[in-house]
Design a protein around this nucleic acid. Structure first.
Lengths: 233, 233
DNA sequence: ACCTGAACACCGTTCAAGT
DNA sequence: ACCTGAACACCGTTCAAGT
């Protein structure tokens, strides 16, 4: 009944990936180090290189694992409903691993077998709209780039030390209050609503300061536009 | 007439920022090093630290400079036209400095004074739609996150060494052709259109392989949806 | 097969010292 | 004020050596 291994290895690829995700979740991408990962697993950093060829490869494997958690169900739901719900699920998964956002948002390829169920579900739903093949491809790119790109911007964080040490208080808030109404009237008038709640004018990341209503706005508007485009075709 | 400096300094903050952008444009973000920047300017790396407090701060300054090149004109154009054209201009600027995409897409705040003209223009145009104040803020976030997030995904690149050295040929293309039609029928059927032209299924970055029609699709669809939302309100 | 332990070639950053 | 030159505390990665 099964094999009996003489010597149980200390490390497994799956454990390494698990610990990579946990380590980044806890301490952030910048603090993620092969030496730190090794220490956490009670091993020399060189031991990891026996299982995985490089740090870049390890990050790719970790993001592949996260991609495999994306929604893959498609139960003949109305395409509008599915696209909305799936977008929220994708956002939820990304928020759960917010420190991974830069990898999610700037990694060109993942393991296709891990992403295939999600991709297939999106394509299936998009075909249900009646768009032709070329438009389905564009709609796919539009949707994926919109959801993942938008959320990865929402989750963007500030690396330490970008502010000069001399400036006291919250620098960005000070900058905002220094704007003059005669030069940027709309910005100044809307400032109470914009400050820390709009892109380029936030100091807290989407991790602690999520932009829920704006995400709903963008995805709902996109779906409405899709509906219009289909009706017109 | 004017002051006569006794000793002309070798370095200026503006020159440092210029060279930073040039260096990253030429060799990429990963290859950008304080030592490399210093060497290019004929100086010791420690000399740079007299002018700027850290590498992170320098990257923030560089991205601020790029942000200041975003469109700021608003000549009473129809809001649909303006939002479309501005989106294309933003994309154009990002493509010109494609190696900066990760910074663009994941940096939470920029210098507000540099971004203010662009922000003001977007807000002005959005108010012209007739949306109320709360919706203008959401529409602003929707638009900015859509354009910048989408394009930064388009420009994402693959760091070196993410593929195992053993695999021959183009790995992703091989993976795609290995997919079975009974598990992912839509993916397989659309494969000729998807391969290297869709997110998660590309091996060439948007730098060399731009996704023009998909960008048009997403921004036009969003604007159409916005129109519908306004008409309905 | 799988891990140790040391080593190499780099980093960002600091700091005394020069001018 | 502005830069040199060396140094510190790290990195990712390699490799002989152990078991």
């Amino acid at each position: 009944m099964g094999r009996r291994p003489k010597e149980v290895p200390l490390l497994t690829i799956d454990q390494i990936i698990d610990e990579t995700i946990a380590c980044i979740d806890e301490h952030g991408l910048e603090a993620f180090t092969m030496r730190r990962l090794a220490a956490r697993m009670g091993v020399y950093s060189s031991a990891i290189y026996w299982h995985v060829s490089s740090k870049a490869r390890l990050l790719a494997l970790a993001s592949t694992r996260l991609v495999s958690k994306l929604p893959a169900d498609d139960e003949g739901t109305d395409w509008r409903v599915w696209l909305l719900q799936a977008a929220r699920q994708v956002r939820g998964t990304m928020h759960e691993h917010a420190n991974f956002a830069p990898v999610f948002g700037s990694q060109i390829s993942v393991d296709v077998s891990a992403a295939a169920p999600f991709i297939e579900a999106v394509l299936t739903v998009l075909r249900r709209t009646g768009l032709d093949e070329a438009q389905v491809v564009d709609a796919f790119n539009a949707y994926i780039g919109l959801v993942m790109g938008w959320v990865s911007m929402e989750l963007s964080a500030e690396p330490d030390g970008v502010h000069d040490e001399g400036t006291p208080g919250i620098p960005l808030a000070d900058q905002l209050s220094a704007l003059r109404a005669n030069e940027q009237p709309n910005l100044v008038e809307l400032l109470p609503r914009l400050a820390n709640h709009a892109f380029m004018m936030r100091w807290d990341s989407g991790r602690s300061n999520p932009l829920d209503s704006s995400f709903d706005f963008v995805i709902e508007t996109f779906i409405a536009g899709l509906e219009l485009r289909i009706a017109g075709a």
